[in-house]
Nucleic acid binder design. Sequence first.
DNA 1: TACCAGGAGAAAA
DNA 2: TTTTCTCATGGT
Length: 219
Amino acid sequence: MTAPAPAPFRAVYRAFLGAYGPQHWWPGDGPFAVMVGAVLTQNTAWVNVERALANLARAGCLSAEAIVGLPAPRLAELLRPSGYFNVKAGRLQELCAWLLARGGLAALAALATSRLRRELLAVKGIGPETAADILLFAFERPVFVIDAYTRRVFGRLGLVDPGADYEDLRRVFESALGRRVAVMNEYHALIVRHGKDVCRTRPRCGACCLARRRPAREG
DNA sequence: TACCAGGAGAAAA
DNA sequence: TTTTCTCATGGT
């Protein structure tokens, strides 16, 4: 896939930031809580993830050691509000077991991004989007997160093929935005915000009206 | 009542 | 290799 011009991607970013302001995703939660949240938010509304995170915190189980040490049914019970609780209990324990086996967060932070990404993807339950979430928001690596909103919004804008391979889409955004972690962080959050506020409630919103110079016509 | 949410893996075709 | 199914709670 040839790299498109970066200007439209930057224009959309400016438009969304102007419309919605900074989204403050995962501010100051710490890398471990971000990793846990990245698993719990799989196909789940964030408000429900927060309930499960609060359960873990109340139970004193917001650490890799505690999560690995919990019986799976007990962990699942704490995760219940986030949905898919049996599945996520297993995934969380896999992730935490890997984290401990690799020597903890500091050891992982010393790895090159490509290596860290490969290892994350080898953990059962960590797919490309969750790995990207963890790399960007927990380890502050310049890895763009592609999700369903990204495909929908930028597909409507005609900037990408919404059915394109995940890696191809990721490279398109990364080449357009440069290696700026703060921009990638904010951009992903803004895309989600726009997708929720506009594209979902107004399926024919005019191909993401905020990003267009002129309103798109219906049809 | 039906649909959606900050996906991923297994099974089936 | 690609598509479909399953996992599940909570809000709208």
